[in-house]
C-alpha cells in the first residue's frame, strides 16, 4: 500500500474537451503518481487516447478543439499559458504505430537532443548510447547505428521510438497503445521495458489489452463515453471493481 503515498506528478481537475460540438471528455478528475505505471483502458472511442494527448498538448494540432479545466504538472498549470515545446520535452510520447523518421538510427535518437541545442558529437554519442540501452535496443543495433531506421523490425522500431523519446530526458512518458501493432515477443519486451523504466519515469499507457494493463500497471483508469468511470489501484480494479460497468467491461473482455 506504499504506492498510495507516492507523490502526485500530474493532477487533472474538472477537465472537459470538445471537438466542435462533440463533448469528448466530461469532467475528468484524476491524479497521476510519480514513478508508477498508470493504465488507461476502455472501449474504442471512450476518450482515453484523447485524454492522453491533452497531457502533452498534442491535441493542439487538431482543429476546433476546445479544452476547459486544469491540468498541473508538478503543481504548474499546463493548459493555459505554457511553452508547449518545453512541455513536450518534459512529457514525452510514444505512438501506437512505430514512427521512426526516415533517417539513420543514430539520427533518430539524436533528433531530440539536437533540436534542443546539443551539438557536441561526444555528448550526442553518449546520449544515443544511454537512450538505446535504456530502451533495451543497444545490443541489437549498436553495430548499425548509421543504417536507416526503416530497415529494422517493427518491435525494434517501437523501442527505437522509446529511445528517441528518452533521449530528450522526459519526466513523464505517455504511451498510446504502444504494442498494438507488434507481435507477442516484441510486446513482452516493451512490457519488461516499462517495468524497468518506471524507476526513473512516470508512465501513462493507453492499452486495449486487459492482460497488459493487469501485468504492468500500478493503477488503472476505466473510461467510457468520455467519462472516467473508475480509477483505482490496478489490483482493485481487476478484482474488486466498485462500478458495475467496470466489472462488465473487464469480465467481458476476459470471458
Amino acid at each position: 500500500m506504499q504506492k498510495e503515498i507516492s507523490k502526485k506528478k500530474i493532477v487533472v481537475k474538472d477537465l472537459n474537451l470538445f471537438y466542435g460540438e462533440f463533448h469528448a471528455l466530461k469532467a475528468i478528475n484524476m491524479d497521476i503518481y510519480e514513478g508508477e505505471v498508470t493504465a488507461l483502458i476502455g472501449p474504442s472511442g471512450c476518450g482515453k487516447s484523447t485524454f492522453l494527448k491533452t497531457l502533452n498538448r498534442m491535441n493542439d494540432l487538431v482543429e476546433h478543439v476546445r479544452v476547459t479545466g486544469s491540468i498541473t504538472l508538478d503543481g504548474n498549470e499546463i493548459l493555459s499559458d505554457v511553452d508547449v515545446v518545453a512541455l513536450r520535452k518534459r512529457v514525452g510520447m510514444v505512438f501506437q504505430k512505430p514512427n521512426p523518421f526516415p533517417m539513420s538510427i543514430y539520427d533518430n535518437v539524436a533528433y531530440g537532443p539536437r533540436i534542443h541545442g546539443i551539438k557536441k558529437k561526444s555528448q550526442l554519442d553518449e546520449i544515443v548510447e544511454k537512450s538505446l540501452r535504456a530502451a533495451a535496443l543497444w545490443d541489437e543495433v549498436s553495430d548499425r547505428l548509421s543504417k536507416s531506421a526503416l530497415g529494422i523490425s517493427g518491435g525494434q522500431q517501437q523501442r527505437l521510438c522509446i529511445a528517441r523519446t528518452l533521449a530528450t530526458e522526459p519526466e513523464v512518458l505517455l504511451m498510446d497503445e504502444p504494442t498494438s501493432a507488434l507481435d507477442p515477443i516484441s510486446t513482452s519486451k516493451i512490457e519488461e521495458l516499462c517495468e524497468t523504466l518506471k524507476k526513473n519515469y512516470t508512465i501513462v499507457i493507453v492499452t486495449h489489452n486487459m492482460q497488459q494493463a493487469g501485468r504492468i500497471s500500478d493503477r488503472t483508469a476505466f473510461f467510457l463515453l468520455g467519462e472516467l468511470v473508475e480509477y483505482d489501484l490496478t489490483e482493485r480494479i481487476f478484482h474488486r471493481p466498485r462500478n458495475e460497468k467496470t466489472e462488465r467491461y473487464i469480465t467481458g473482455r476476459f470471458g
Binding site: 474538472d14 472537459n16 493542439d60 478543439v65 476546445r66 479544452v67 476547459t68 479545466g69 493548459l79 493555459s80 499559458d81 505554457v82 511553452d83 508547449v84 515545446v85
Partner: peptide, 13 residues
Amino acid sequence: MKDVSVISQRKGL
C-alpha cells in the same frame, strides 16, 4: 473554468 484553447505565446516563437 477558463477557456485555454489559445496556444501560448513565447519569445522564441
